[in-house]
Deep mutational scan, measured.
Amino acid sequence: GKRLNIQLKKGTEGLGFSITSRDVTIGGSAPIYVKNILPRGAAIQDGRLKAGDRLIEVNGVDLVGKSQEEVVSLLRSTKMEGTVSLLVFRQED
């Protein structure tokens, strides 16, 4: 696979993607993946982020050990017109 650095500018329609966690172990944390890209928002305008990408970092914060809720609040904490920096891991087909 490969790592991608993606910067998304948060506009009025938001970042435009949803996340999910897979393989949750009890008391553990699961990897966070991009669930889908919404028809409006920064992600589809940028065009690089894809469903199935694994989020590794948000704005330089390592997501290991973070819950899905914590990751959502990290993403939401970005101000309007601010930039969210994502490091994602993509499995090659």
Rank of each mutant, 00 (worst) to 15 (best):
E70Q: 09
L55Y: 01
K9W: 13
V24P: 15
G65S: 08
G28Y: 12
V72Q: 11
S77C: 14
I26H: 13
Q45I: 08
L74A: 05
L63Q: 02
R90L: 01
G14R: 02
D93I: 08
G65L: 04
S77M: 08
V88S: 02
V24K: 06
K50C: 06
I6R: 01
I19R: 01
T20K: 05
S77V: 10
S73P: 04
Q7V: 13
G1Y: 15
R3A: 09
V24D: 11
G47C: 02
S29T: 11
V61W: 06
A51I: 13
S29I: 10
A30W: 03
F89R: 06
Q68M: 07
G82E: 14
A51E: 05
L74E: 06
V84I: 09
R3W: 08
K79P: 10
R22T: 14
I32R: 01
D23G: 13
R90T: 03
A30T: 04
T83H: 09
N36S: 13
Q68P: 11
K9N: 11
P31T: 10
G65D: 08
S21E: 12
N5C: 14
S77Y: 10
I56C: 06
G65C: 06
L74V: 05
T78D: 09
T12Q: 14
E57Q: 09
K50D: 04
I26F: 10
G14A: 04
T25M: 11
D23A: 05
L74N: 04
G82A: 14
E13Q: 09
D46L: 00
K50W: 05
P39R: 07
I44A: 12
K50E: 11
R76V: 12
L8W: 02
Q45M: 15
T25E: 15
I19E: 00
D93N: 14
G14I: 01
T20L: 06
S18T: 14
G82D: 13
L75C: 06
R48W: 01
G28T: 11
A51Y: 04
F89N: 14
G11A: 06
V72H: 14
K66G: 03
S18G: 15
A43Q: 03
V24W: 15
D23S: 09
E92V: 13
G14K: 03
G41Y: 01
K2E: 09
G47S: 04
A30N: 03
K35H: 10
S21N: 15
K79S: 13
V64E: 10
K79Q: 12
R90A: 03
E69W: 06
L87H: 12
D93F: 13
K66R: 08
A43M: 01
L49M: 05
D93G: 08
V84S: 02
A30Y: 08
A43T: 01
E13L: 07
G28H: 13
L15D: 00
I37K: 00
S67E: 09
R40W: 13
L49A: 00
I56Q: 06
E57V: 04
Q7N: 12
E57W: 04
I44K: 13
V61L: 08
T25V: 06
K50F: 04
Q91L: 11
I26P: 12
E70L: 06
E57P: 02
K2W: 05
R22N: 15
E69T: 12
V71A: 07
I56N: 02
G82K: 15
I32C: 14
R3P: 05
Q7M: 15
K50I: 05
N59W: 02
V71C: 14
K66L: 12
D46Q: 03
N36V: 07
P39S: 11
A42F: 01
T12M: 15
A43N: 01
R48N: 09
N36L: 05
S67T: 12
R3H: 11
S21G: 06
G41A: 03
G1N: 15
L74H: 04
G41P: 02
R48S: 06
F17E: 01
I37Y: 00
S21R: 12
Q45L: 08
V61Q: 10
F17T: 00
V61Y: 07
R48K: 05
I32S: 03
G65M: 05
V88I: 09
E70G: 06
A42Y: 03
D93C: 11
L75Y: 04
I6E: 01
S85R: 14
D62N: 13
R22E: 12
V61C: 07
L49Q: 05
V88W: 02
L63G: 02
L4T: 04
L74I: 11
D23M: 08
G47M: 02
L55H: 00
L8H: 00
M80C: 13
K50R: 14
F17K: 01
S77W: 10
T25L: 09
L86E: 01
P39G: 15
Q7H: 15
Y33C: 05
R76N: 15
N5H: 13
K79G: 13
L55F: 03
Y33T: 06
L75M: 07
P39F: 04
Y33K: 05
E92I: 12
K9L: 13
G60C: 04
L4C: 01
V24N: 10
N5I: 09
G41L: 01
L4K: 04
T83V: 08
G41R: 00
K35W: 05
G82P: 05
E69A: 08
V24G: 08
E92M: 11
Q91K: 10
R90S: 04
E13N: 08
A42G: 07
L63N: 01
R22P: 15
L87K: 15
R90Y: 03
E70A: 09
A42C: 02
S29G: 15
T12R: 12
T83P: 06
D53F: 00
K79N: 15
G52M: 04
K66S: 06
R54W: 10
F17Y: 03
Q68A: 09
L74S: 05
E69M: 09
M80Q: 14
V84Y: 03
S73V: 08
F17I: 05
T20S: 09
K2H: 05
S29M: 10
S77N: 11
G11Y: 04
V24E: 07
G11T: 12
L8R: 00
Y33S: 05
L8C: 04
S77E: 15
I44C: 13
E92R: 10
N36C: 11
P31L: 13
Q68C: 14
L87T: 13
L86P: 01
S85E: 10
R76Q: 13
L4G: 01
Q45N: 10
L75K: 01
K9V: 14
T12P: 14
L4Q: 04
P39D: 13
K79I: 07
I32K: 03
L55P: 01
I19H: 01
N5A: 12
Q91S: 10
N59Y: 00
D62G: 12
E81D: 12
E92G: 10
G65H: 07
V58F: 12
L15H: 03
L75A: 01
I44Q: 10
L75R: 00
L74P: 00
N59V: 00
S18D: 15
S29R: 09
P39N: 15
T83D: 05
I56R: 02
I26L: 14
I37R: 00
V24M: 08
T78H: 08
E92H: 08
T25K: 07
I6W: 00
G52D: 03
R76W: 09
V64A: 14
G82L: 07
T78F: 07
D53P: 00
D46R: 03
D62W: 04
Y33L: 11
I44H: 11
L63P: 02
V64C: 11
T78E: 11
A30H: 12
S29E: 14
K66N: 04
T12V: 12
A43W: 03
